[in-house]
């Protein structure tokens, strides 16, 4: 295994550059670390990559996931039963990196666990285990001066959100602070909420790109391959969370029951989405 230390350009940059050359959107599946158990997480990460994930988004369990809908809330609650915290999640990424040095990994979570660990300690460890980006849901750019500076020195991309309620002026500010990509929350609501309106999305992305040069990932409300394909036609990345978390939960019989059959099912689900993403701009 090679110890990967991410430099100022994380894997996200080269990955998006390559995808742009292929004229294809990235597929980024999300799972919550530790759901249903910490030992299942690394196997699930490899299954997602085997199915065709271009990057992975890994949720850091938090006691109060305010921006998440019921599916991911419950995943956080299941993960917390094992006592998994931010340090433990970083250990899981390190274990994943033993077999996969290529696939970008983005952590998605809330601010308090990072503060509890200490921002610098977190950034140092995250960089050394090969984390590429960090999305802190409840940290808007206005509150992120220190984080942006520390991440910049550690070669980690701070990923920020854009929403339908974000003004043009704020879009400019968000684009200026973030790197890697921006995550467009495609509907007003929490994760796993109602289906998104893909037609409206196209127009919204045109508006965002007027002021934002970063790749734009779209998430919230993408449940199936068909929707993923339609989003991939207009977005730079398709992020799928609740649908995968739900599939894992319904397939696994308990915390110790993520067997090959479950991994195959997850891989198959991602592969189906990937085919739709591949076909989107053909």
């Amino acid at each position: 295994m090679t110890e990967t230390t991410v430099q100022s350009n994380s894997r996200l940059g080269s990955r998006f550059t390559a995808l742009s050359a292929e004229n294809r959107a990235a597929l980024i599946p999300y799972i919550t670390a530790g759901d249903p158990s910490p030992k299942a997480t690394v196997a699930l990460m490899h299954a997602l990559v085997a199915g065709g994930a271009d990057a992975l988004e890994i949720g850091v369990p938090f006691s109060d996931p305010m921006a998440d809908g019921p599916v991911i809330q419950q995943a956080h609650e299941r993960a917390l039963k094992s006592g998994l915290g931010l340090r433990g999640v970083l250990d899981l990424v390190a274990e994943f990196r033993q077999k996969d040095a290529e696939t970008p990994v983005v952590l998605m979570g809330y601010q308090n666990p990072i503060e509890a660990m200490g921002l610098q300690a977190f950034a140092d460890r995250a960089a050394s285990v090969g984390v590429d980006g960090v999305l802190t849901v409840d940290l808007p750019p206005e509150e992120a001066d220190e984080l942006v500076e520390v991440f910049g020195k550690s070669g980690i991309d701070p990923i920020f959100l854009l929403a339908p309620t974000t003004s043009g002026e704020r879009t400019r500010a968000v684009a200026a602070r973030g790197s890697g990509f921006v995550y467009y929350v495609s509907l007003k609501g929490v994760t796993g909420a109602a289906n998104l309106d893909v037609d409206a999305l196209g127009a919204q992305l045109i508006r965002i790109r007027e002021t934002c040069d970063l790749p734009v990932g779209v998430g919230f409300g993408i449940r199936d391959a068909q929707t993923a394909g339609r989003v991939a036609a207009v977005a730079d990345a398709v992020i799928v969370g609740s649908a995968i978390v739900k599939l894992i939960h319904e397939s696994a019989q308990g915390p110790d029951e993520v067997d090959q059959a479950v991994l195959d099912k997850v891989e198959g689900f991602v592969a189906e989405m990937r085919s739709a993403v591949n076909a989107a701009r053909k």
Binding site: A67, P140, E142, E143, A163, P164, T165, R170, V185, G189
Partner: peptide
């Protein structure tokens, strides 16, 4: 102006709520 009392307060919410 940033809603701070010393080190405390501020505005730590997801982007969708920033506009409102």
């Amino acid at each position: 102006a940033r809603g701070r009392f010393g080190d405390y307060g501020g505005r730590y919410v997801a982007e969708t709520l920033m506009g409102p």
